[in-house]
């Protein structure tokens, strides 16, 4: 038995040291040298103050900002210390109620808009922290934001087009735009 126990203990300890201590610290070291900003969370600052991470969505509700994906985290939406989806199945009445509530909120903020609402704007993201919306969802909100900021519609659309990301070769990635980046650009254009 000792011929099994000794290798088991020594090898376990040595490999734990290698894979559980040296490896993560080595990666951390490489990260600080090569990708310092990404490794620290891709933080975005305004006037020297951190206002978010470009990778983590925030819950915007004011009419003058782009709204992001609905978030099912608790207790508050976009809780970045407790990521979660809604986990509601397609037949769950709570899912349909939630979608209705989101549609009503969007229509209340922009009664004149009769365009169909893009699906990603009324369904909860997987992480509850999705930083992006589809380009369709950004365009859908352009009119509301233009009025709230007293800017022409096409200026809002120009800002969207400036920051949108594309689907490459018709299959790689999705047409989308980062909500925090858009809203910072809006504030810079006209607070």
């Amino acid at each position: 038995m000792i011929s099994i126990l000794r290798p088991a203990f020594v090898l376990f300890a040595a490999l734990t040291l290698l894979c559980g201590v040296l490896y993560p610290y080595a990666i951390t070291g490489i990260g600080q040298v090569a990708f310092a900003s990404q490794a620290a969370g891709s933080l975005v600052s305004r006037g020297g103050q951190p206002v978010g991470s470009s990778l983590i969505g925030q819950a915007f509700s004011s009419p003058k900002y782009f709204w992001g994906r609905p978030s099912a985290t608790s207790p508050m939406p976009n809780n970045a210390t407790a990521s979660s989806g809604s986990n509601q199945g397609p037949l769950n009445p709570a899912l349909i109620d939630a979608v209705k509530g989101r549609i009503n909120a969007l229509k209340a903020a922009d009664p004149a808009n009769i365009a169909p609402i893009p699906v990603d704007l009324v369904t909860a993201s997987a992480s509850g922290l999705d930083p992006e919306i589809s380009v369709a969802s950004a365009y859908y909100q352009a009119g509301r934001i233009a009025r709230a900021r007293q800017l022409p519609d096409n200026e809002i659309r120009n800002i969207i087009d400036q920051y949108r990301e594309s689907r490459y070769f018709n299959f790689f990635g999705e047409p989308r735009v980062n909500v925090l980046v858009l809203n910072l650009a809006l504030d810079q254009r006209r607070p």
Partner: peptide, 13 residues
């Protein structure tokens, strides 16, 4: 402009 489909529980990217 969008992926469409069943986006509940999916990420935009």
């Amino acid at each position: 402009l969008q992926s469409g489909g069943n986006m509940e529980g999916k990420e935009t990217r």
